[in-house]
Write a protein that binds this DNA or RNA. Sequence first.
DNA 1: GCGTGATACGTAGCGTTGCTACCTATAGTC
DNA 2: GACTATAGGTAGCAACGCTACGTATCACGC
Lengths: 112, 112
Amino acid sequence: MRAEELKGHLDALLLAALEGGPRHGYAVIEALRQNTGGRLDLPTGTIYPALRRLEQAGLITGAWSVVGGRRRREYRLTAAGTRALSGRRADWRDFSATVSAALEGRPWPSPA
Amino acid sequence: MRAEELKGHLDALLLAALEGGPRHGYAVIEALRQNTGGRLDLPTGTIYPALRRLEQAGLITGAWSVVGGRRRREYRLTAAGTRALSGRRADWRDFSATVSAALEGRPWPSPA
DNA sequence: GCGTGATACGTAGCGTTGCTACCTATAGTC
DNA sequence: GACTATAGGTAGCAACGCTACGTATCACGC
């Protein structure tokens, strides 16, 4: 998967990963990897800053906890985050339909 | 349509717009607009630099012409461009399936 | 002749954002 | 002691589409 492709869609994926309940960053990475058959294997340098962005935007809230001697920051969706997620889903459907139409449709004849 | 969503996918759209025959920049914009029912209405500041990038990458070639007193730069796909287009189409299908799986699938239960 | 809109090309500079590369720390296993 | 998995983080970079301009021609109304 080329790198730039994900730009602008990561937030939606992260919100979706938190939809089923609270998760910490590392678990989000694993969930994404498992749910996409390994096609989406995002580096920590992508996930952690993105989660902080979402927290700062008020779409998720984070709380520290310690499990098995290791500290975790558990994130959960806020009400605004839930709304944002459904907005992003609609955006994705629209975007994906638009690009598919432009890309997969039969060649557009040039007027010449 | 949010702005960042397009990132990394524009090249494919431009190549596809040239698949049916040579077009100049302004005509590409119109073709994109018409072919997506107006959902994709890209500014010239997006299209012209992108076409130059593609030309520099050897995926398209441009040639000046004058029609009705106005100069145009007509672009056409090169052989490499045609190959690139089919690669990008495959990328899109893979990417779109991956994101849809992660986004539209039923909520993953949290392991807690 | 003048203004306005469509056609047609272009550039400068910006902001966003995901990535690479690196760092810290604990627990378990060999 | 070394290594892997788990868990968090930052600095700096590169890519790229967008905004805001600027240039020019042609057609049309007035």
